[in-house]
């Protein structure tokens, strides 16, 4: 797996809380949110908390940038918007992220999360991020 991504995950405590992991396939990096009871938002409908999904996609977007920028790069979210396309289930979630554009100071990243199949996205989010050189 990409060393910069592994380093970022290791240095990001919220990734531990999320049970976040990354792997690589032919198409690029793939991110996973482990299922955990604490990720449930509404105990009656047993869906993942929308904010937890947002946090997962934000870490995924930051990993995608870390892979491009190299180890130790500073990455900070400026703002985000997220669409909840369908209800989630009490199951793990998988995601991919793609960099729409990366400038010198700013990057635009999209992330898509799914559960049953990649063809049925559950959530899509767009992040704008400030980026800087290695610390």
């Amino acid at each position: 797996m990409n060393a910069s991504v592994a380093t970022l995950i290791e240095r990001t405590p919220v990734a531990g809380w999320l049970g976040f992991s990354a792997s690589e396939d032919d198409e690029g990096l793939v991110y996973a949110l482990a299922f955990d009871e604490k990720h449930i938002g509404n105990p009656l409908i047993r869906a993942l908390h929308g904010g937890v999904i947002g946090a997962f996609l934000e870490v995924a977007a930051q990993c995608e940038l870390a892979a491009r920028l190299g180890p130790g790069a500073a990455i900070k979210s400026v703002n985000m918007d997220i669409d909840y396309l369908m209800s989630s289930r009490a199951q793990p979630m998988t995601a991919r992220a793609s960099i729409t554009r990366m400038g010198r100071r700013l990057a635009f990243v999209e992330a898509t999360g799914w559960q049953a199949s990649e063809a049925k996205p559950v959530t899509k989010a767009r992040f704008r991020m400030r980026i800087g050189a290695a610390d």
Binding site: R11, P13, V14, G16, G41, G51, A55, E58, I82
Partner: peptide, 25 residues
């Protein structure tokens, strides 16, 4: 809480999303 920090040591944006989604709902 500490467990929701990002790589820079400050609170990760994801926690702000969790809080605001909860209170908005």
């Amino acid at each position: 809480p500490d467990e929701f920090t990002g790589a820079d040591g400050d609170i990760h944006g994801g926690l702000m999303t969790i809080i605001m989604d909860s209170i908005f709902g």
